[in-house]
């Protein structure tokens, strides 16, 4: 944060165009394997970053660094105005209250029902009373259209339903930032679209800033080029206008380096041979 800015941290974060997540020359290596090499980017409030790259390019690592699950070797990571790269586990818990993460394959707790999974944080960490938790869980499951599955176990759900429950769990405590780790990998195109739509709805209707890590180009472009709007008491997914679709920025990682950063149109027009191979 600039030192000369007279506003408080909260005021800066509440303003339009505030930087919610900032990577400044972040590097990480495991032994002699370099994962990230001086990676820098900024996620603006209410916008979407879509991180693309081949397997092992360090995409998921970015999310783990934001959550503080891993620590960077060099560089600075800011999340909601707090520097998380040097933070201890205890302080990180505070930062994580404003972050939601959807893990690859969902990472739902097998021994808990859908209701208990979605309400986990409200109930176990925020210690909300039961009726308030139930009301929020029902509301959120309605949002992802899974109300009738509330008392099922995760093993009774299909792959797509599990991802949607994972999204519901991540957003239950109304975080300002949602991180998606390969949310559609392994799903058929139709089911994948239902997951993409949830991501778009959360961004446009709930004002959540999101970072989506994926190698599924179809889904990446879908999220970037669509927007959600309320109409007649329901929700419609429509083609986004130029300005809206530019709010979704792509980052392409290659061997730990950012090799492209820009909106969907620019990515499509790129003449870089690696990008062209990736997109073809």
């Amino acid at each position: 944060m600039p030192a000369e800015d007279p506003r408080t941290r909260q005021e800066i974060l509440d303003a339009t165009g505030a930087p919610i997540v900032m990577f400044d020359k972040v590097s990480l290596a495991f032994d002699d394997k370099v994962i990230l090499r001086e990676v820098s980017f900024t996620l603006i409030k209410g916008h979407t970053k879509i991180i693309l790259g081949a397997s092992g390019a360090g995409k998921s690592t970015v999310l783990k660094l934001i959550l503080g699950l891993w620590k960077a070797d060099g560089g600075v990571v800011w999340v909601n105005g707090e520097r998380v790269d040097q933070m201890g586990e205890h302080d990180l818990m505070r930062v994580r209250t404003d972050l939601g993460m959807v893990f690859q394959e969902g990472a739902l707790f097998d021994s808990l029902t859908v209701r208990e999974n979605v309400g986990y944080k409200l109930w176990e960490e925020l210690r909300w009373p039961d009726d308030k938790v139930n009301a929020r869980v029902e509301e959120i499951l309605g949002f992802v259209a899974l109300s009738e599955h509330i008392d099922k176990m995760p093993s009774d759900l299909s792959g797509g339903q599990r991802r949607r429950v994972a999204i519901a769990r991540a957003m239950a405590a109304k975080p300002r930032v949602l991180l998606y780790d390969e949310p559609t990998t392994g799903l058929d195109p139709i089911t994948a679209t239902t997951v993409d739509e949830e991501i778009v709805k959360l961004r446009d209707l709930e004002g959540v800033s999101s970072i989506v890590v994926t190698h599924q180009l179809r889904d990446a472009f879908y999220i970037a080029t669509h927007s959600a709007e309320r109409s007649n008491g329901g929700v419609r997914i429509v083609q986004a206008d130029q300005e809206k679709s530019e709010e979704a920025e792509f980052i392409m990682l290659r061997d730990g380096l950012v090799c492209f950063e820009g909106p969907a149109g620019e990515l499509r027009r790129s003449t870089d041979p690696y990008l062209k191979t990736f997109l073809s």
């Binding site: 959550l67 699950l69 818990m93 993460m101 394959e105 990472a107 960490e125 991540a170």
Partner: peptide, 14 residues
């Protein structure tokens, strides 16, 4: 291995 431990930490649980 199912990342549930990471999920716990992400949800604010030690």
């Amino acid at each position: 291995v199912a990342e549930q431990i990471s999920a716990l930490r992400a949800l604010g649980t030690d």
